[in-house]
Structures are given as C-alpha cells and as structure tokens.
Simulated assay, not measured.
Amino acid sequence: MKFQAAIFDMDGLLLDTERLCMHVFKQACQSVNVPFYQETYLSIIGRNSAGIETIFRQAYGDNYDKLHQEWRTQYDAVVKHQAIPVKAGVVELLEWLKAQHIPAVVATSTHREVAQVKLDLAELSHYFSDLTCGCEVSNGKPDPEIYLLAASRLGVDAKQCIAFEDSNNGVRSAIAANMATFQIPDLVEPCEQVKALNPMIMPSLHDALSYLKHPA
C-alpha cells in the first residue's frame, strides 16, 4: 500500500473522548431538564459545530441554547484540564509512520483551540505536522472539504493520502476525498451504506498497523 501522508480524525480515533462527551451531554440534559435522545446524539458524531447545532436545534428547539451552554461548560471543565486516554495502537502507529518518514496530520471536526489542548495534554502533538479543524471549513464531515484542505496544506494529492476514522460521517468524508480509508469503530458501528463504500474496517489501530506492515 503506497501513500505519501496519513490523515487522522481525533475524537474516538486517537483519543477516547466520545464516551466522555456523551456522558457529559446526558448530564447536561438532566441539568436543564430535557430528555436525552440517544439516536439523535449518535447521529452528530463526526460532525463539526455547525452540523451539530443544526441537528440539535431540530431536536431540542428553544431549549438548545441553554443545553449547549451547559454541555460546553461541563465538557470544557474536563478536556481543557486533564489528559484524555489515548486509544489502543495510536502511539505504535504514529511511531511507525515517523520511522517511515511519512507525515501525519489531524483533520478533526473539533474547534482548533480545544483540539490543540486535547492533543497537547495527551502528549500527541509532536507527531503531527499540521492540524485542520471543523472551524476552518464551510462544510463539515461527511463533506470531503476538511480532508481535501488537509491534503492541500501538505501539498499532497488527496489520492496519495491514507485516512483513519471511527465514525460513519468521517468515513464518508475521507472516501469522498478519494482517500484509502481505515475505519476503527468506536461508539457507532459501520452502517450498511458505509460498508458499501468499502473502507478497511479494523478492530483497532494495532490491526491497521499490522495491515500496513503486511498488506494482504
């Protein structure tokens, strides 16, 4: 498998943030006395802030603003001050890419300020030469814009990049950008429509690394 650069999602792929984020959202719902809609919540995974707001405003209506403020406050109180656990296989894969002189970058729907803090606290920042964030694109995942922007900043053709994602929205984004894509599912299993796109679905990044070292 030949590629010139590797592009990584962050939440749920590099960092075990998705369960924390959902737990905090449930707490926020309780705090402002609104129901927790699990299916609606799972549908926002991988989207940027604009996409999340659109979905949640439809679900929560006039309660959205106070719910969002409570969620943001509780979430930031955690992720801006303590390291989120790194997912299995992350460091091993990043070290291997470094040894192969293959640049690695992050393409995350998270706002840049928060994303940088998360990577710094997890001691992963030094592995990445660039960070492309949801606040920097007009169309968030599943649109390919963020992956195309990340590739252009590297000066690498998108077809020469390999992508790593956990969410269905993220996989759709990377494949639409014509990147070979690994999916390492986290909270949400690959749906049938995403399976039909033929991502390389692996249980962990350990497995993805084994595949890269010894492709079938």
Rank of each mutant, 00 (worst) to 15 (best):
A158C: 09
A151E: 03
I146D: 05
Q183K: 09
A174G: 06
P185T: 10
S173N: 03
N178W: 10
S167L: 02
A158D: 05
F182V: 04
G134P: 13
P185R: 04
C135L: 06
N139R: 09
S138M: 14
D166R: 03
A163T: 14
L154T: 09
N168S: 12
A158R: 09
K141L: 12
L154K: 05
D166G: 00
C133T: 08
E165T: 12
A151S: 12
K159Q: 11
G140N: 10
D166L: 01
I184G: 01
I146H: 05
N178V: 09
V171Q: 02
Y147R: 05
V156L: 04
C161S: 02
T132K: 00
Q160H: 13
E145P: 13
D186H: 07
A174T: 12
P185K: 01
E136V: 03
V171Y: 07
Q183W: 11
A151P: 09
G134R: 07
C161V: 06
V171A: 11
G155E: 02
R172F: 04
K141Y: 13
A176M: 03
C133R: 00
D157V: 10
G140C: 06
A177I: 15
I175S: 10
P144I: 13
N169P: 04
K141D: 12
C161R: 05
A163C: 09
I184K: 00
F182G: 01
S152I: 00
L131R: 02
L154F: 08
A151F: 08
D157C: 08
N168A: 08
T181F: 14
G140D: 08
I175H: 10
A177E: 14
N168D: 15
V137N: 00
P142Q: 04
I162F: 02
D157M: 14
D143L: 01
N169Y: 10
Y147W: 09
N169S: 10
L149F: 08
A158V: 10
G155C: 03
L131V: 04
A151W: 10
A177T: 13
L148D: 03
V171C: 07
I162N: 00
Q160A: 11
Q160T: 12
Y147F: 15
G155T: 05
A177M: 11
G134W: 03
Q183V: 11
L149K: 14
N178T: 15
N168T: 15
V156F: 06
N168C: 13
G134N: 08
V171T: 13
G155M: 03
P144V: 14
Y147Q: 08
P185D: 05
L148P: 01
E136K: 04
A180W: 11
F182M: 01
E145D: 14
N178S: 15
K159R: 11
C135K: 05
E145M: 12
A177Q: 13
I146S: 07
P185E: 05
G140V: 06
R153K: 15
Y147H: 12
A180H: 14
C161F: 04
G155A: 02
D186E: 10
T132D: 01
F164P: 01
Q160G: 00
I146Q: 03
V171R: 04
A177Y: 15
D166K: 03
R172W: 09
M179D: 14
C133S: 07
L149R: 07
A174Q: 10
